[in-house]
Measured scan of single mutants.
Amino acid sequence: MKTQEELTEIVRDHFSDMGEAATLYVQVYESSLESLVGGVIFEDGRHYTFVYENEDLVYE
């Protein structure tokens, strides 16, 4: 099982292909040891929320 830090790095790496991230945040109260819930805000103003669970990243 991966730590939240490892899950955060996986998510950060995925979003790095989409541009320069200004902020990546984790909603600790919705996350667990198995999943990471949060969002990313890019330098150009785009904002996505995400759920990373079971090696699957879903974002909108």
Rank of each mutant, 00 (worst) to 15 (best):
V11C: 12
S16D: 05
N54G: 07
G45W: 08
E6T: 06
D13Q: 15
Q27N: 12
F50L: 02
Y25I: 07
D13I: 14
R12A: 06
E9S: 10
S16G: 07
S16I: 08
I10E: 04
H47P: 00
V28D: 05
E34D: 07
E30I: 14
E53F: 12
S16T: 08
V11S: 03
A21C: 15
S16F: 09
D17V: 13
S35C: 15
L36D: 00
S35K: 15
L57G: 02
Q27W: 14
E55L: 09
E30Y: 13
D13K: 15
V40T: 01
I41R: 04
Y29D: 03
V28I: 12
V51G: 01
E55M: 10
V58F: 10
V37Y: 07
E55C: 13
D56M: 15
Y29L: 05
S31N: 06
E9Y: 06
E20Q: 12
T3N: 05
S35R: 15
E5K: 09
Y52H: 01
F15G: 02
V26G: 01
D44R: 04
L36Q: 01
F15W: 05
F50W: 06
H47W: 09
L24D: 01
E5T: 07
V28W: 14
E55N: 13
G45M: 03
V11Y: 03
E5M: 09
Y29A: 03
L36A: 03
Y29S: 04
D44E: 02
F42E: 00
V28E: 08
V51S: 07
L36P: 00
T3K: 04
D56L: 15
V11Q: 03
L57A: 03
V58I: 10
E30F: 13
R12S: 04
L24A: 02
R12C: 15
Q27V: 15
T3R: 07
E43F: 09
G39E: 13
Q4C: 15
V58S: 10
T3C: 14
A21N: 12
L7W: 06
D44A: 07
S32F: 09
Y59V: 12
Y59I: 13
T8I: 15
S16Q: 09
L24H: 01
Y48N: 00
E53T: 11
I41Q: 02
Q4H: 06
D56G: 12
H47Y: 09
Q27E: 12
T23D: 06
E53W: 12
R46W: 07
E34R: 11
E53D: 06
S32Q: 09
G39N: 05
E9M: 12
A22C: 15
